[in-house]
């Protein structure tokens, strides 16, 4: 009963906020609706017992990715009239994309109902490891069965990260950075001298 109510609550909110993401006029509102959509999706995942994925969804997408979205959108000066002007021109492309996505959804559901989609072993013979928590079974799979793929994915991400840094990094010579350890080493005695000048003589620095 509570399970059903919770499911419909999350599902309705998810669809409503997803619709509002594309309907709202203010892009900041769109991002905020998107965050609500992520949150409800996490709620649905908790309902099917995938609590680990749900938490990761909130931590990664809501906690990190959406914050960046929000900032980019807040900083941008978007001209709405110009955005809407291209609507008719891009309409066929949009329809095409929608059709492709729909076809993929149908294909996915078809494959799922045909029983080809099973988590567990590479040949899809076994299901989720029974009687173990989410984290346990995901860990056992990632570090046992799929260790090579997992490490390879990590390496690909590392290369991508280094590539992004190398591409955007530029050496600036016109700034004067500070050497923190040098600053911390500096003591009052190094910087000040105590002199007792005679009256009327002054000091030489």
């Amino acid at each position: 009963m509570i399970h059903t109510i919770a499911f419909y609550l999350f599902a309705v909110l998810l669809i409503a906020s997803a619709v509002l993401v594309i309907m709202s006029r203010n892009p900041v509102h769109s991002v905020l609706w998107l965050i609500l959509a992520f949150f409800n999706a996490a709620g649905l995942m908790v309902l099917v017992g995938a609590e680990f994925i749900a938490m990761l969804l909130v931590i990664v997408y809501v906690g990190a990715v959406a914050v960046l979205f929000l900032f980019v959108v807040m900083m941008l000066d978007i001209d709405f009239a110009e955005l809407r002007a291209g609507f008719v021109k891009n309409f066929p492309l949009g329809i095409l994309l929608a059709v492709i996505l729909l076809a993929e959804l149908v294909l996915g559901f078809g494959a799922y109902r045909a029983g080809a989609l099973k988590l567990g072993e590479a040949d899809g013979t076994a299901g989720v490891i029974a009687g173990r928590s989410n984290i346990d079974s995901i860990g056992a799979l990632l570090y046992g069965e799929y260790l090579f793929l997992f490490e390879a994915a990590g390496l690909v991400l590392l290369v991508a990260m280094i590539g992004a840094i190398v591409l955007t990094h530029r050496e600036r010579t016109d700034t004067r950075g500070q050497n923190v350890s040098k600053q911390n080493k500096r003591r009052a005695e190094d910087a000040t001298v105590n002199v007792k000048p005679e009256v009327g003589k002054g000091v030489t620095l």
Binding site: M55, V58, I59, F71, M74
Partner: peptide, 25 residues
């Protein structure tokens, strides 16, 4: 008393930034 208690706390505390960002904007 959930299995992913610590992750839940991380998730919730990563949400707390939104209150500040929304207020500021």
């Amino acid at each position: 008393d959930i299995n992913v208690g610590l992750l839940y706390i991380l998730a919730i505390s990563s949400l707390s930034v939104y209150g500040v960002v929304m207020a500021g904007w």
